[in-house]
Design a binder for these strands. Structure first.
Lengths: 372, 372
DNA sequence: TTGTAAGCGTTATCAC
DNA sequence: GTGATAACGCTTACAA
């Protein structure tokens, strides 16, 4: 459109050529600068403004984000690095992020950083090729520390969600300790005395906080802590541990359970299990169901997260609610403030958690069945 | 870095200034053009190539995607317009899309188009501001027809996933008809004779296909079709219908059930329910559970989708599996071929569905309980 | 208030 | 093979 030959050349592969600022300037009989001023709300004589506006409307003009970004050095786009897509936990976080971003006209470049993939390459791409103005990183892990530090050193806007690492970056987290205390006290108040925690992977700091909260509540009540570690937060990990527990129950102590196994140190089985994620809890419940063990009659289960499924499955899962959507929104909001330069400090926002009591937890009754 | 004053000016807000192609050229003692050639694998004398390569390494140079995009007129980014984030269905689709894209070095700009939002604004933004090279649109709806047609008219690369509309664009769908036939036949083969289908919203074409498949199988068996329509594919919608069914069961026919209600025409209740989505099925099962009605003893349930939960919940949900991840990947692959111009034709890819039998479906036994 | 012109970091078209 | 130089579409001093 800028020139005839150009227009002609491209007509073959894209019918409606996009109007540029020059086209508008030409049509309105003003300079590009003036069009730009109208575009950016800078002072322009009323009459000129209208003239330009009409030209823009007529040509269906929309500014080219690339060109604008090139001069402005920003893309109005932030990157989000989720660990997985098919997740009831990150879904609502993305939701919160997206709505906060959309309100400010920002777009979301989503990347999934699996465990195995070269995560560093992703970071480099994000920053060095400058496609984005800032990054949102849910559930940062040990391996992320180095690249995140590098970003922080470059004054590159980064906000962590659901996790913190040892770097000067802002983060939105929840009170894992308090959530665990609440959950554990709930089980204690129901009358349970053998309460185990099924913790998440040990390389995540929040795992420790949850174990700490649990331990605090347990010791407060004069009980014995019993900590099991899972390899991940998934349903499969929960199911695996539950299977081990059941296998130990039916087999003799002479069964080929290797030493160092979580089972070696556990003469009696718990009557209540506090799982560090709803997914794990669901995995556990599946195994229990298949074994004919009833929840909550035989064993009480409490989860953590309050994902959508928690209220959907039966029995409904008693759990510690995380305000996932709010976490995403708050993280995005902070990131935008960082990007705009309106606020440079490091923020650590701790959101509260709430216990949601449903049907999966109850008084210990037929516990004998499990702890024979 | 390009000039001293520039560098100084920016040092305050970003420590490590990014090297440009000019910097590399300067350091290597060649012209920008040569550096560009090295970058793009164009013929360059071996010696020069190494010189440039060393300079790039030393400066930690990475090409600026914005500038490159400005000249090349592409962003190596495609847009994905999901209806919702917190969804066990779109999660795997995004997964498939992302991995196909990542393999080709493309990024994913994800936007969520809720029902109420001004979807058109999103489309305009995507195309007119040219931030993306193509668009992937899962589950297109009636309201999307117009903007999608506009995109197609502009020869803008678009691929639909899990749905089709009346426009010359490529799409990846599944064989909804066959899936429904399989599910229904399964229930028939178990011995059910009163089988209802809980269909999704009527404004989605695949709803009709599923109803058609159901009807075909039902009539084949000489049975009477019984179609219920839900407002959406969500668990809540499923639960709502199930509640209505139960309310009708306990109340007399004189109960204040308005005429036109789905219940008015149903003297006896079904012994099997084929739900058009797993989410709906889960909602239904929740209501049944709360009412003390057993699945599959009292009523058999079959879903559609095979979302992750289907295998996780208990009883496990018998369902029609959709290859969601594959759908995403296939859609993305086609889009990339469109973008690269390597293939211009409209493709319609129909993927097959498979019945996955789990525990939620069984022979009709205590059906009397429901149909008293 | 408005126009001119110089960037932004690339790629592409020429010459040499 | 390689080097000037002109785009690409926008913003922004600086002038007028």
């Amino acid at each position: 459109m800028a020139s005839l030959s150009y227009r002609f050349h491209h007509r073959y592969w894209r019918l409606s050529e996009l109007a540029t600022i020059s086209d508008v300037a030409l049509a309105a009989g003003v300079s590009k600068a003036t069009v730009s001023r109208v575009l950016n709300g800078l002072p322009v004589r009323r009459e000129t403004h209208d003239k330009v506006q009409r030209a823009m409307d007529k040509l269906g003009y929309h500014p080219n984000a690339q060109a604008r970004g090139l001069t402005l050095k920003r893309t109005n786009t932030v990157g989000v690095l989720v660990p997985e897509f098919d997740s009831p936990f990150y879904g609502p976080i993305l939701d919160g992020v997206h709505s906060a971003l959309a309100r400010s006209g920002y777009q979301m470049l989503v990347s999934c950083v699996g465990q195995n993939i070269t995560r560093k390459a992703t970071y480099v791409q994000l920053l060095r090729e400058r496609k984005i103005d800032g990054a949102l990183i849910p559930t940062p892990r040990e391996v992320d520390v180095e690249p995140i530090r590098a970003l922080a050193d470059d004054r590159f806007p980064v906000v962590l969600i659901d996790g913190m690492i040892d770097a000067p970056v802002s983060s939105v987290v929840i009170d894992n300790f308090d959530g665990s205390v609440q959950a554990t006290r709930h089980l204690i108040s129901l009358g349970h005395s053998r309460i185990a925690i099924l913790s998440g992977p040990a390389d995540l700091p929040e795992s420790h906080d949850r174990v700490r909260g649990y331990t605090r509540a347990i010791q407060e009540a004069g009980l014995e802590p019993d900590v099991l570690y899972a390899a991940g937060y998934s349903a499969e990990c929960g199911a695996a541990i539950a299977s081990q527990l059941l296998a130990a129950r039916s087999g003799s102590s002479a069964s080929p359970v290797a030493q160092g196994s979580i089972l070696a140190i556990r003469p009696k089985l718990p009557t209540a299990l506090f799982c560090a994620s709803d997914n794990m809890a669901i995995g556990v419940m599946r195994v229990l169901y298949d074994a004919g063990i009833r929840v909550p009659e035989d064993v009480s289960i409490v989860g953590f997260d309050d994902v959508r499924d928690a209220s959907l499955i039966r029995p409904g899962l008693t759990t510690v609610r995380q305000p996932t959507q709010e976490m995403g929104a708050a993280g995005a909001a902070k990131l935008l403030r960082l990007v705009s330069g309106e606020e440079m400090g490091v923020m650590k926002l701790v959101l509260r958690t709430d216990l949601v009591v449903r049907q999966s937890s109850g008084r210990p009754r037929g516990a004998a069945r499990l702890s024979e």
